[in-house]
Write a protein that binds this DNA or RNA. Structure first.
Length: 192
DNA sequence: CTCCTACTCCTGC
DNA sequence: GCAGGAGTAGGAG
C-alpha cells in the first residue's frame, strides 16, 4: 500500500520530511495561551490546522518549546482567536484539523493513535501491531513521546501492556487526569 | 557510527 | 514484588 497522509475519520495533514527540515519556513503560526480542564496550555495553529498543543503552568517554557519545534516559522500571538479554538476543542468537543511535522514512521504512529476510540485505552504493543511492525514497540513509544499535540493526538490513551501507566511527556498525573476526564465524559454522554 | 528511548520479557532475589 | 539485563527498531547528532 502506498503511503498517503489522509485519514477518513479526521482531518490530518502532515508535512513531508523535506518541509519538516525547514521547521516551518514562511509558515504563519497563530498562538495563544488558555485554560483547559487540565491546566494552562499553549495552542498554536496554522491555516492548515493545529500544529502545537502542550500543557504547562509555565508560559515561558511553553513558548520556548513552540519556538524550538517551529524555529523558522512566523509566530503571531492572538489570544482572542486561540481562545475560540480552545473553546471548540475542550467545551464543544469539535473535531479540528491537525497539522504536524514528522517522519513517515512518526506519522503512521500518530494516525494509529487517532483511531483509538474516545474513552478507551490501548497499549504500545497494539499500536506497533496496527502499523504492521509488532517488534518496533520501543520505536513506537519514542514516536508517541515526541508528538507536539497533546490531547488532539490521544497519546494519553496508550499505556503499558501490563496496564501500568508508563510515561507521559506532560506528567503521569496529567495522563491520569485526562483518562479520568474522558471516562467521566463518556458516562455523561450515555446518560443523556 | 554511537547513544538514546513514554517497551517488554526474563531472571534472580 | 522489585531490580537489572537483553532484545529490539527507529530517531538524533
Amino acid at each position: 500500500m502506498k503511503d498517503n497522509f489522509e485519514i477518513d475519520s479526521s482531518n490530518f495533514t502532515a508535512l513531508s520530511p523535506k518541509e519538516y527540515k525547514e521547521l516551518g519556513k514562511d509558515l504563519e503560526i497563530v498562538y495563544g495561551f488558555g485554560s483547559t480542564p487540565f491546566g494552562k496550555a499553549l495552542l498554536a495553529s496554522t491555516k492548515r490546522g493545529v500544529c502545537f498543543l502542550a500543557f504547562d503552568e509555565d508560559e515561558e517554557k511553553l513558548l520556548f518549546e513552540l519556538e524550538k519545534s517551529w524555529s523558522n516559522a512566523l509566530l503571531i500571538r492572538d489570544d482572542v482567536k486561540i481562545e475560540k479554538q480552545f473553546k471548540s476543542i475542550f467545551l464543544d468537543n469539535k473535531k479540528v484539523d491537525i497539522f504536524v511535522k514528522g517522519t513517515n514512521f512518526q506519522i503512521n504512529v500518530w494516525k494509529a493513535l487517532l483511531n483509538i476510540p474516545d474513552a478507551s485505552v490501548t497499549t504500545y504493543q497494539d499500536i506497533a501491531n496496527s502499523i504492521d511492525k509488532p517488534k518496533a514497540v520501543r520505536a513506537v513509544a519514542t514516536a508517541i513521546g515526541s508528538n507536539n499535540i497533546a490531547y488532539l493526538i490521544p497519546c494519553h490513551r496508550v499505556i503499558g501492556k501490563s496496564g501500568a501507566m508508563s510515561g507521559y511527556r506532560w506528567g503521569i498525573d496529567r495522563k491520569k487526569i485526562l483518562l479520568a476526564y474522558e471516562a467521566m465524559k463518556d458516562i455523561d454522554e450515555k446518560n443523556r
